[in-house]
């Protein structure tokens, strides 16, 4: 699956498009991570647990979007955008959306 965040797949010609596909996930960390993050807040620095959480969520959102595109019969997703929101306290919502296309 080709993923791009521009209008086209550079060097390839889009022959067919299927509309938008989206993938989203909401994830929370366990209380231990929250606790460590609270400690880290005192001294500053990277919150590894939270970085990991965001990474995992983003990957899952991408995977779900890819799966949707595959179900539609596409072989590429162009113009992908990411967005986050905080639906719940202590949980991260990540979503990715793009246009499913078929390239030659």
């Amino acid at each position: 699956m080709i993923m791009t965040n521009v209008n086209t797949v550079p060097g390839k010609k889009i022959v067919e498009h299927f509309g938008i596909v989206q993938g989203s996930t909401v994830r929370a960390k366990h209380f231990g991570r929250d606790f460590m993050a609270g400690l880290k807040n005192l001294v500053g620095g990277e919150l590894k647990g939270y970085t990991e959480l965001l990474q995992d969520s983003r990957q899952e959102a991408m995977k779900r979007m890819e799966e949707q595109a595959r179900q539609m019969g596409a072989n590429a997703v162009v113009n992908i955008r990411f967005a986050t929101s905080s639906v719940a306290q202590g949980a991260a919502e990540l979503f990715a959306y793009g246009t499913a296309v078929r390239v030659e």
């Binding site: 067919e16 498009h17 299927f18 993938g23 779900r64 949707q68 539609m72 019969g73």
Partner: peptide
Amino acid sequence: MKFTPIQLEDNINV
């Protein structure tokens, strides 16, 4: 560029 509308029955996001 041709548009092929597809309605997915399976909802992967839930």
